[in-house]
Design a protein around this nucleic acid. Sequence first.
DNA 1: TATGAATGAGTCTTCATTCAT
DNA 2: CATGAATGAAGACTCATTCAT
Lengths: 177, 177, 177, 177
Amino acid sequence: MLDLVVKQGIQATPMSQVVKQSGVAAGTIYHHFASKEEIINELYLNLKKEFGSTLSNQVDLNTSYKTQFFQIWTNLYDYFCENETAFHFAEQIGHCTMITPETKQKGELYYLPVIEFFANGIAQNQLREMDLKLMSNLIYGNVVTAVQLTLSGELIMTKDRLQTVIQSSWDSVAKHN
Amino acid sequence: MLDLVVKQGIQATPMSQVVKQSGVAAGTIYHHFASKEEIINELYLNLKKEFGSTLSNQVDLNTSYKTQFFQIWTNLYDYFCENETAFHFAEQIGHCTMITPETKQKGELYYLPVIEFFANGIAQNQLREMDLKLMSNLIYGNVVTAVQLTLSGELIMTKDRLQTVIQSSWDSVAKHN
Amino acid sequence: MLDLVVKQGIQATPMSQVVKQSGVAAGTIYHHFASKEEIINELYLNLKKEFGSTLSNQVDLNTSYKTQFFQIWTNLYDYFCENETAFHFAEQIGHCTMITPETKQKGELYYLPVIEFFANGIAQNQLREMDLKLMSNLIYGNVVTAVQLTLSGELIMTKDRLQTVIQSSWDSVAKHN
Amino acid sequence: MLDLVVKQGIQATPMSQVVKQSGVAAGTIYHHFASKEEIINELYLNLKKEFGSTLSNQVDLNTSYKTQFFQIWTNLYDYFCENETAFHFAEQIGHCTMITPETKQKGELYYLPVIEFFANGIAQNQLREMDLKLMSNLIYGNVVTAVQLTLSGELIMTKDRLQTVIQSSWDSVAKHN
DNA sequence: TATGAATGAGTCTTCATTCAT
DNA sequence: CATGAATGAAGACTCATTCAT
């Protein structure tokens, strides 16, 4: 059922639509969730989990650090492009007071592996010294920017263009000698 | 009157509050604007204009290109931090269907000078070859990320830290040899 | 508009019915009252006021204390019988949490003249020594009992019967030698 | 199970709570009762029965009529004070349409002994001539008044004060010569 | 031009009741 | 007999917008 609501997307959609889309009665939804807020929070966590698990796909630890960085970046980019509603949902939810701090904290746990990946990068002198939260948010923001332009149709994202963006992203955090 | 509404912030606030805050009657507002949507669009444009005019503050054309880049970046960052509601308004509005494509297009005009600044950067071999829309959005995204972390209190933005971020931003678009 | 709602009676009736009965839109009602609770409280106060003003009708200060007692008793009894919905409303409202303590306190002010009447009765040795609140509630309860039996049709309240009840009520508080 | 619901009190409580409190499933309850209305009616009858059986406690037929009157009065008063929820339930239920006339009639049967007690009182010239229904309701109302003031804390009911109230109640129906 | 009371469709949520298991 | 997920009409309340003054 959660997934149905995800497809419906957007926290701005009224419960009445969620009800129609989900194919169950209003009461049924409230039998499982205490409130709209709870649904949204649950959804948020589910998505974050899925985002998190997507990140490490096909990341070959035997390849170079930079290659792994590119793979992770691409993973998130591809996932967002293929799951447009999920992306928009995540974007909207960031600017909405419905998500409790607790939920946000829980959600961040799913990104821990990437944070660690960045920490390792710094330790291995691959990445520059920088606050980890700052670094990860910067990269995440880059992905979001790329996805937005792609999905909005404002930019046709060729493979070359994508490589350029990821390279930009890499350059912004890589250690320069 | 517009400014009052800006301070009120957020498109999520009901008209009734706008009415109270503005000190005029509901009818009066609808005498000047056709709908809430029109108000929001007008607001959006006003803000974009202000953002745009802020960008070129204290930019000394006699300094190096990189210095100018830093100044522009800082201008936007400072403006957002000092005008928190305006920032949040702009953020929310980005993910809301109320802003018409036309308005968005108009809004982008105010960023033309920066786009041009970037175009010059590429022409002068200071910046790498990259789609201008992509480049500007990437940089804008960096600013937004920095502002978000600052305003949310998740990161204490020291001067050093800020310089690092801008440097990152610069590295992501600068020409590397 | 208040009166319309009074006629509708009963706090148990849904707002939707109040809306229909009153002939105005839901929004209009909420333009004047903050909530259903506020309406009920306002109503309660209005009724108490009316009850209070009814009590002193035709009370001739030149007649004997007992005669005045009978007149006051009859006034309340008649008023309740003639305003059935008001009576039922008052009865229900007593057992409902919607009335705030403040409102109750305010409402009691309208009964002050009667309280004073009882106080005088005690001072003049017409009534026995008894807590004033207790005494007034006892008498009020007697009236309510009589009204209930009358309105429910369980008892045909002849003039004689009514005189007997009032006499009972009088005997319960009168000074016995 | 009924008793659990009694403790829960109040007909205003939703079935969902009744379900939780009772420890059985919703379906199970509706397996035994046709509707909430039926439960409430059953409850009402149970309470009336208990009230009725309480009345004759410790009533010594060898004592004077007045003494027995005082004992019965006290019995009801004490029972209500000790079973606050039952009292409030009974009060609320009186002003609610859920109780069918049939149920009310059945409930009154439990008060028959007291009615008879009053009838005897009249026959023995202890009580004045008065409709029995009227008399019993008057006395019952006195008890309710006393209980209400006690439970609400509006009056501290000392033993002396209580005796005064019962005396009042007695005087209102006793034969005066 | 300015007002603000009036609108009513729409919001989230509740709850007595049913029915497949 | 028992379960509890499912129902959906109804509840109180909101809010962008209109219109008579």
